[in-house]
């Protein structure tokens, strides 16, 4: 049994989420073949062996300098058809959410999308997917061969399981396609996406005005590049923060190691988006706020006094 783990790169560098895909793949047992589309060698792809890949294949094509949805989908679908794979695994990242359905459609199947758990039961692949933004979990049996699955970011913590992964480079002949990425406008250096950050600090109405989010940004910086600043729907709807930062049912669902909710009351649609966080801290002036019901640790009081103090303490830890 072989699993095809689809890795992701940007600007010729493997994205860290790729190691999560390899880690999940090796949990299925059998052989793990990792594959990445690149214009040439992808920096970091050789590390995939460290997390359990038996073989690392780089598919090269001039179109792969940037994400080329149609060309990548064609190359990967052709690979998937040849290989007799049991499962094809993607990350449910922005790229993976775009790419996995294209590949699946070419294989005539659906994606078991954004899963948080995967097991095999006899010959069956069983996955768990949060639905209704995590208000419920759906257990699904995937009967297609190959099964096409995408993994929620931050759930499958990379585990080192060193294998001497053999490397192979294959030039693929596919057209560039009708959809091409002409540029990437990058966010300021060091900006992490809330869906991928290890620490998420979200603010709500309690921040009182948009400029006050700087207290959260300072706290995020104190975590030394591991933290992202999120927001509740209320403040996104008021235009204080971009939608990209919204955590909740109509925003992103996040699973960081540490989620700090600041000045957020805890509407059900927000709780849905962050309840799978490993540890939740709530800071709110209202001791009866629903957010305290899901928080592991709560501090009641004025966030403008509490957060700067917390920033100071975290800075001490991170030196």
């Amino acid at each position: 049994m072989t699993t095809l783990a689809v890795l992701e790169q940007r600007d010729g560098v493997l994205r860290k989420i790729s190691y999560e895909v390899v880690t999940a793949a090796q949990r299925l047992g059998g052989t793990v073949e990792a594959v990445v589309c690149g214009v040439g060698p992808v920096q970091g792809a050789d590390q995939a062996g460290k997390y359990g890949a038996d073989k690392i294949v780089t598919l090269t094509n001039p179109a792969f300098a940037r994400y080329a949805p149609e060309a990548c989908a064609q190359a990967l679908a052709e690979r998937a058809k040849q290989g007799g794979y049991q499962t094809v695994l993607f990350a449910a990242s922005a790229t993976g959410k775009d790419l996995a359905p294209r590949v699946a459609a070419k294989l005539g199947v659906a994606v078991a999308a954004d899963i948080t758990d995967v097991t095999t039961d006899g010959g069956d692949l069983l996955v768990t997917r949060p639905v209704y933004a995590g208000k419920a979990l759906l257990k699904v049996k995937v009967a297609s061969r190959p099964a096409v699955v995408s993994l929620r970011p931050n759930v499958f913590t990379p585990v080192e399981r060193r294998k001497a992964g053999a490397a192979e480079t294959v030039a693929v002949n596919v057209p560039a396609g009708r959809v091409t990425v002409r540029e990437i406008k990058t966010a300021p250096a060091g900006t992490l996406d809330v869906a991928e950050a290890q620490v998420v600090i979200s603010g709500g109405r309690g921040l009182k005005e948009p400029a006050n989010f700087k207290v959260l940004e300072e706290l995020a910086r104190a975590f030394g590049g591991q933290a992202a600043v999120g927001a509740s729907r209320a403040v996104v709807d008021m235009g204080w923060r971009p939608h990209a930062d919204q955590v909740g049912q109509t925003g992103k669902t996040v699973s960081p190691s540490l989620y700090i909710a600041v000045g957020i009351s805890g509407m059900i649609q927000h709780l849905a988006g962050m309840r799978t966080s490993k540890v939740i801290v709530a800071i709110n002036k209202d001791k009866d706020a629903p957010i305290f019901k899901v928080a592991d640790y709560g501090v009641v009081g004025d966030l403008f006094e509490i957060v700067p103090k917390l920033t100071e303490e975290i800075r001490k830890l991170h030196g």
Partner: peptide, 18 residues
């Protein structure tokens, strides 16, 4: 090829503390 086996409530978070 996707068959629903079960819809389940998410695991309860254990009681936190102030």
């Amino acid at each position: 090829t996707l068959e629903i086996v079960a819809l389940m409530p998410p695991p309860e978070r254990k009681e936190g503390k102030i």
